[in-house]
Simulated scan of single mutants.
Amino acid sequence: MAFDAHLETLRRKHQAMSEAVETAQRSPGVDDLEVATMKKEKLRLKEEIARLSA
């Protein structure tokens, strides 16, 4: 059960990061470096989810 809960937590974090990236990209004053950092974190989460799901 703990494994499933961890995986679900990662999925929620990935979804939240995805929404944050979209919001940041639509905001005119957001730094490109900040968006790039957010995208890297989103990718890291995606890769960890894929690794654990395999």
Rank of each mutant, 00 (worst) to 15 (best):
M1N: 06
M1Y: 07
M1T: 05
A2C: 02
A2S: 10
A2Y: 07
F3R: 10
A5F: 08
A5T: 07
A5M: 08
H6Y: 10
H6G: 01
H6M: 11
E8H: 06
T9G: 05
T9D: 14
T9A: 15
L10W: 04
R11C: 09
R12V: 01
R12G: 01
R12I: 00
K13P: 00
K13N: 04
K13R: 11
K13S: 09
K13Y: 04
H14Y: 10
H14I: 02
Q15D: 11
A16G: 03
A16S: 09
A16K: 08
A16Y: 10
M17Q: 12
M17D: 08
M17T: 07
M17N: 08
M17I: 00
S18F: 11
S18R: 07
E19G: 03
A20G: 02
A20K: 15
A20H: 09
A20R: 15
A20P: 00
A20D: 10
V21S: 06
V21P: 00
E22Q: 14
E22R: 14
T23Q: 13
T23K: 14
T23G: 01
A24Q: 04
Q25G: 05
Q25E: 15
R26K: 15
R26Y: 04
R26A: 14
R26T: 04
S27Q: 13
P28A: 11
P28M: 03
P28G: 03
G29W: 09
V30K: 02
D31A: 14
D32V: 04
D32R: 14
D32Y: 02
L33F: 10
E34A: 13
E34K: 11
V35N: 09
V35W: 05
A36M: 10
A36Y: 06
A36Q: 13
T37C: 13
K39C: 04
K39V: 09
K39W: 02
K40T: 12
E41S: 05
E41H: 04
E41P: 00
K42C: 11
L43E: 13
R44F: 14
R44S: 15
R44I: 14
L45F: 03
L45T: 07
L45H: 03
K46R: 14
K46N: 08
E47Q: 09
E48D: 09
E48K: 11
E48S: 04
I49Q: 00
I49T: 02
A50H: 06
A50D: 12
A50W: 06
A50C: 03
R51D: 08
S53P: 01
S53K: 13
S53H: 05
S53I: 02
S53C: 05
A54W: 06
A54K: 15
A54H: 11
